[in-house]
Design a protein around this nucleic acid. Structure first.
Lengths: 193, 193
DNA sequence: AGGATTTTGTAACGAATGCTATAATTGCGC
DNA sequence: GCGCAATTATAGCATTCGTTACAAAATCCT
């Protein structure tokens, strides 16, 4: 029983996603956002609360959709397949022609300034959580026998994440999907067994 | 034949270096800089011209000193040694206890917003130049016979750079030198031969 | 239709940004 | 001692930042 909203929230979030992805959190001004969405500041604040609140929604969406697709690679049968699929999906996501290049989270993690800032801390936490899940998966693989007993699950997880972040920044500065797949192939040569 | 400067330029540049390193280019305000140096804005502009000009001096210094140390690894005898030394030196530089963690250039490259911005473009250009020198070195190694003929110099150079950028961001979010050395060891397992 | 409620538009807030005009200080050569 | 030139300090420039009062417009329920 009230006036109906004149813009679509989901569409607005997608527009904001592109902006944050391209320009980072601090690099995207409220004016950028309201212009892209096509609304005035009061509508923005009524709908989203604040710039930071909207960014969290954007980041949550990104994690739940695109990053989750990569993370689902942990369900592959063997450790080797997990690594291969994870890398391949990152390469795919970071060079999706329908999206800005690179990784939204990675772009904003560094662009957000120090990792001890509010948002920076959260992004670092997310990163470590992902690395932890990979490590756990490789430990399990070791128990199940499809990963050499001498391998180091922690080092493997860290290595994959490092290559992933490297690929994200490579993509952001213009690398093509073929370039990234090249790197994936190289990285897999380091895999034990 | 004039009033003598009350602060030391080199000391000021070093103070600015730490700030840019920690907070990125846009994350560091003029107020941050003048406060850290201990001067007022007019002195700052008289001495450095602008914030961007100072940043370029900072970046040049960084490249000529620290990054150059890593880059000197291309003078090693074999391709394998080049790769090993390059990675080791990056790991060392990015976790130097006397400096902020990570790579000044890498931190600012992403923090500077889009790679098509003025500074972003320059940082991207620097990155590609470094990768090009590595590629050339590996091509030479191939001709000299210490790198397998079937190897791909371009892929090798790209892989090293990717791991380097990944290590930089890993260090920035808290990874220790031991962590990075772990990654170096892993990456080297991918090396041909 | 009337009133309650939510969204919208206008306009502006205080604070911070990078930067500078003006003029007062300081030091050297003459 | 004096004038010239370089550096300094005070103060403020215009702009942009994220954010918000305030009131008009638009909807639904009674």
């Amino acid at each position: 029983m009230a006036r109906q909203r004149v813009f679509d929230i989901e569409t607005a979030i997608e527009a904001a996603t592109v902006l944050f992805w391209r320009q980072g959190y601090e690099g995207t001004s409220l004016s950028d956002l309201t212009t892209a969405i096509g609304i005035a500041p009061p509508s923005f604040y009524h709908a989203f609360g604040s710039k930071e609140a909207l960014f969290r929604r954007v980041l949550d969406r990104y994690r739940a959709s695109r990053l989750q697709y990569a993370e689902d690679a942990v369900n592959c049968a063997t450790a080797r397949e997990v690594a291969e699929q994870m890398l391949l999906r990152w390469a795919e996501l970071y060079t999706d022609p329908e999206c800005p290049p690179g990784c939204l989270a990675a772009n904003c993690a560094l662009a957000g300034g120090a990792p001890d800032s509010l948002l920076g801390g959260e992004l670092t936490r997310v990163r470590k959580a992902r690395q932890g899940r990979l490590r756990k998966r490789f430990k399990r693989a070791q128990q199940e026998g499809d990963l050499a007993a001498g391998a180091n699950p922690d080092a493997l997880a860290r290595f994959l994440m490092t290559v992933g972040w490297g690929m994200a920044s490579d993509a952001r500065s213009g690398a093509s999907r073929a370039d990234l797949l090249c790197t994936v192939e190289m990285a897999l040569k380091a895999w034990p067994g």
